[in-house]
């Protein structure tokens, strides 16, 4: 059921969504397929590495964040996909048993002259640990369908 449209995203609004407890098994499973470096697949190698312990691949944290975005609001939203991510910073490693939440800030919402059926919403997405440390900071644009396509916003 898609009941959120472009008009529902208000600039400067900040909300948090969901939570995900990270397991060693999922860190290793993801890394074996997509990022098989020692500190992502082996506890001892993780301890001896710069990260100080078995740590999730940065791309895994991006994927976990995408899932929190989906479950938090995007599956209810008339999403039309994303043209991309302007910046993505890995600020702190993510370890087993970290509990991650999503903080969403609406940075800008603009309509499209060429595609009146949608608008472009720029979000800052942050992945927060339980102690509010930001592990991942990302700025992403999502194309979102308009409730009344072609209507003029005030």
């Amino acid at each position: 059921m898609q009941d959120l449209f472009f008009e529902d995203f208000v600039t400067d609004e900040v909300r948090t969504f969901g939570s995900h407890k990270v397991s060693a098994e999922e860190i290793i499973s993801f890394a074996k397929e997509y990022d098989p470096q020692p500190m992502h697949v082996d506890e001892q190698a993780g301890k001896a590495s710069m990260l100080g312990g078995l740590a999730a691949s940065g791309w895994h944290t991006c994927a976990i964040m995408m899932r929190l975005i989906c479950d938090g609001f995007l599956l209810r939203t008339a999403s039309m996909g994303s043209p991309g991510v302007s910046e993505n910073k890995w600020l702190a490693p993510v370890f087993p048993n970290d509990v991650l939440t999503l903080r969403r800030t609406v940075m800008e919402a603009r309509t499209s002259k060429s595609r009146p059926e949608m608008g472009l919403v720029s979000f800052r997405f942050e992945l927060l640990k339980a102690d509010k440390t930001v592990a991942l900071d990302q700025v992403c644009v999502i194309m979102i369908g308009r409730r009344n396509p072609g209507a003029r916003l005030a």
Partner: peptide
């Protein structure tokens, strides 16, 4: 340095990630 190192190393950031075509 660290005793076990990864050949790729550690990422800081990504810029201008573009999904240009489906």
């Amino acid at each position: 340095g660290p005793r076990v190192i990864s050949p790729v190393g550690v990422g800081f950031s990504v810029e201008e990630l573009k999904w240009l075509l489906p």
